[in-house]
């Protein structure tokens, strides 16, 4: 499929027409004219999202072999499998912008590409499986529901598919936490401890306040981003705090209180220095995550090559047979 329509040097008429389409809520499709910056921003945003899904398989994959019941074992495998699928949908969507998945993978493994900071935290107990499903997938859903209306067609369509599958992940996670919170004293302690570790990093998933976020204004204008980071973070907090209260989990924030007027759960200051350290590569397991992905990729090279070689041979054979 021809991926790259000829791009004129940003003709102001083309740009104006493009922005009018966006303002009218139209979907931009792969072969449509688009400003180079739009193409670049989308490529960055979509590939980052795809990388996050793939790296995100690792913290949860870490507990598959230790899942404490057959039902939980199967659910966790299914969840991680879904994440692989989500990464795949979004990589394919990114490829419609004219980039090869091989290059996207290289960018991740070289450390040039970013992925969601939350996956640089280790999973230390079984309860982390519940907390991740509840908080991390929960935060992702808040982000993604608005992305389903993103201006770029392939991205929006991937998001619709993902949102359908995502719902059961969050419910599963919350159910695990609920069972633990209503279980033995050791289980109760386990889930509270896990929640304490993941609460603040989950809030950081939405990114810094938009005044500190360089890409936000442009993405909002192009309807790739539909809400600000702060708006999404507040929505997440408002959804999640009552859920925590319902199962007897304490939010590790002494400043947390309900503002009766706005209905918002007001929370304390976020320690943004931690976030930036993690982004820089100094989080608890940034290195381990990338090393794991590099190893899988390097170990898999001979396998990929074998399949390609076989396919080439088959082509040769069928043309010989046809001759």
């Amino acid at each position: 499929m021809d991926q790259n329509p000829t791009v004129a040097a940003e003709d102001p008429a083309l740009l104006a027409a493009f922005e009018a389409r966006i303002a009218a809520g139209e979907s931009i499709e792969p072969k449509d004219w688009m400003p180079e910056r739009y193409r670049k921003q989308l490529t960055r945003m979509m590939s980052q999202h795809a990388h996050s899904e793939i790296v995100g398989m690792l913290p949860e994959g870490n507990w598959i072999t230790r899942a404490p019941s057959l039902r939980r074992k199967m659910s966790l495998i299914a969840k991680v499998q879904d994440e692989a699928g989500h990464g795949l949908y979004i990589y394919c969507g990114t490829e419609t912008l004219g980039v090869d998945r091989h290059d996207l993978v290289e960018a991740l493994l070289d450390g040039r590409a970013k992925y969601s900071s939350i996956f640089n935290y280790p999973t230390l107990s079984w309860a982390d499986m519940g907390v991740i499903g509840w908080l991390v997938d929960g935060a992702a859903i808040v982000n993604q529901t608005v992305l389903a209306k993103a201006s770029y067609g392939p991205y929006a369509r991937a998001m619709v598919r993902i949102c359908k599958e995502e719902n059961f992940h969050k419910r599963q996670g919350y159910e695990i936490c609920s069972v633990l919170a209503n279980g033995t004293p050791a289980q109760k302690a386990m889930v509270q401890e896990a929640f304490n570790r993941f609460w603040w990093p989950s809030l950081m998933m939405f990114g810094p306040s938009d005044t500190d976020s360089p890409n936000s204004a442009e993405l909002l204008k192009w309807r790739v981003k539909r809400k600000t980071n702060d708006e999404l973070r507040q929505r997440f907090v408002n959804l999640t705090v009552p859920q925590a209260i319902a199962i007897g989990i304490t939010v590790p924030d002494p400043d947390m209180h309900l503002d009766a007027e706005t209905g918002n759960w007001e929370f304390g200051e976020i320690e943004w220095s931690e976030f930036f350290e993690v982004l820089k590569g100094n989080g608890p397991c940034n290195r381990e995550r990338l090393e794991a992905r590099r190893k899988a990729h390097d170990d898999g090279a001979w396998v990929r090559a074998a399949a390609s070689a076989y396919a080439e041979k088959q082509k040769g054979r069928s043309s010989t047979a046809a001759a």
Binding site: I54, M57, I64, I77, Q81, A84, G85, L88, A296, D299
Partner: peptide, 20 residues
């Protein structure tokens, strides 16, 4: 299931999980 996240290519991660 030990292969989850460590397969030779994304599509194979999905296939191996499916069999598991």
């Amino acid at each position: 299931s030990e292969w989850c996240g460590h397969g030779p290519i994304l599509e194979e991660d999905i296939a191996l999980s499916n069999m598991a």
